[in-house]
């Protein structure tokens, strides 16, 4: 009985947290699609989230593509199947690694920044000030971030896909003695529209999750600098876990038997 108590407490806490997130998500999504829509704020967020994440996402994708080519070559060489390297790289990047790694990088860079900024606004009463100035903080602070992150993650992941494939091509051609045009031809003939589209759908979902968690934890932060720090940590951890969880769910939906 004593052993069951902590499990029960944890389950209840998880259910309560899920409920709180759901109660936050409903109005947040509602404000995303109802006027007034702050277009300039959305554009600014798209630049912050998308453009400024390009270096970190690009580098991650590049090295992942390179490692993928090296590792799959080592493995496939044992079965004389080195020709499948291009196929493995493009499939892994477009379906899984592009969206997941970009999502995790954006969670670390953008989700944390959102939680810290909104959290600081909460503890310094700036959010209360917004309310007294006849401005709905959910509409002004949360909705633009969610819309921007959901939209901008799609092109960001497309770039990550291309950079990742080019990373694999670079290693294959310069180090593994592949023929450049054969490698690229293999890549283009093997990849299917669904592979790319499923990855881009995941990108949009991950962008939504990262921004939602950043805004939720920032909006509900309490207790000064320590509270903001906790909110930032929670935003990154919860977004990362949800990305991995939803990746499985979406993969099962798209490609499940």
């Amino acid at each position: 009985m004593v052993l069951l108590q902590p499990i029960g407490r944890a389950v209840l806490a998880l259910l309560a947290a899920t409920g709180r997130v759901a109660l936050f998500t409903g109005p947040a999504v509602g404000h995303c699609v109802s006027p007034p829509i702050y277009w300039r704020a959305i554009l600014r967020q798209m630049v912050d989230i998308g453009f400024y994440s390009l270096p970190v996402v690009g580098l991650t994708a590049l090295f992942t593509g390179m490692v993928l080519a090296l590792q799959s070559y080592t493995g496939f060489a044992r079965f004389n199947a080195e020709g499948a390297v291009a196929n493995v790289v493009v499939l892994s990047m477009t379906r899984e690694l592009g969206p997941v790694l970009a999502g995790l990088m954006v969670a670390g860079r953008v989700g944390a920044a959102m939680a810290a900024e909104i959290g600081t606004m909460r503890v310094t009463e700036q959010i209360d000030a917004l309310t007294t100035l006849s401005t709905n903080p959910m509409k002004y602070l949360v909705a633009p971030r969610i819309v921007a992150a959901t939209l901008v993650m799609v092109p960001l992941v497309l770039v990550a896909d291309i950079v990742g494939v080019m990373g694999g091509w670079l290693v294959s051609v310069t180090k593994l003695n592949f023929n450049s045009s054969t490698y690229l031809l293999n890549t283009l003939t093997f990849v299917q529209t669904m592979d790319v589209v499923s990855g881009l759908v995941k990108a949009a979902v991950f962008g939504f999750v990262v921004s939602l968690m950043g805004c939720y934890h920032g909006f509900n932060s309490r207790g000064g600098a320590r509270g903001v720090g906790t909110a930032t940590t929670n935003a990154v951890v919860s977004a990362s876990i949800l990305i991995l969880l939803l990746d499985y769910v979406l993969t099962a939906m798209f490609f499940g038997a």
Partner: peptide, 11 residues
């Protein structure tokens, strides 16, 4: 209404 906050609460 108008409100002046304790810590100014400027954006």
């Amino acid at each position: 209404i108008g409100m002046l906050f304790q810590g100014a609460a400027l954006f």
